[in-house]
């Protein structure tokens, strides 16, 4: 086994265990944990069995291993960016609605309090 293969395998292992640790510490969702473990696992498998990469490459009619890896990485990043930006929009909208609700509740409460105080002051 070449040194570079060992290094990539070690890196994938460390990254996967770090991902699991993040999940245990409740700093990552189960969905994100699965996704990243799958990524690290794929990296490890392709490092150990580069022929598998060649097999997949030929399946999509590509000849350059680096080019294939770049395309796959870019596609994954695009998909992640798309999902994140959708989530960001939804969260922004939810935060706005929440802020609006807080403002309205606070104003209603203030109004009720001042009404109550007014009533109290009128009582003998």
């Amino acid at each position: 086994m070449r040194i570079i293969t060992v290094a990539i395998l070690a890196l994938a292992l460390v990254a996967a265990s770090y991902t699991v640790r993040l999940f245990i510490r409740d700093r990552s969702s189960i969905r994100a944990t699965f996704f990243w473990i799958l990524i690290w696992l794929s990296i490890g498998v392709f490092a150990a069995f580069p022929d598998l990469l060649d097999f997949l490459m030929r399946g999509v009619m590509m000849q350059n291993r680096m080019f294939f890896l770049f395309i796959v990485a870019i596609l994954i990043l695009y998909a992640m960016f798309f999902r994140q930006s959708n989530q960001h929009t939804m969260m922004k909208r939810q935060v706005s609605r929440l802020a609006q609700e807080i403002a309205l509740l606070r104003a209603t409460l203030d109004q009720e309090l001042s009404r109550h105080e007014e009533k109290q002051s009128k009582q003998p």
Partner: peptide, 25 residues
């Protein structure tokens, strides 16, 4: 004036809608 305070800046459109909601109550 009766005052409704947004805890963060939400933009004029949402501020207008907040005003409507408060008035409609």
């Amino acid at each position: 004036a009766k005052v409704v305070v947004h805890p963060i800046n939400l933009g004029q459109g949402l501020a207008v809608l907040t005003g409507f909601k408060f008035a409609l109550k």
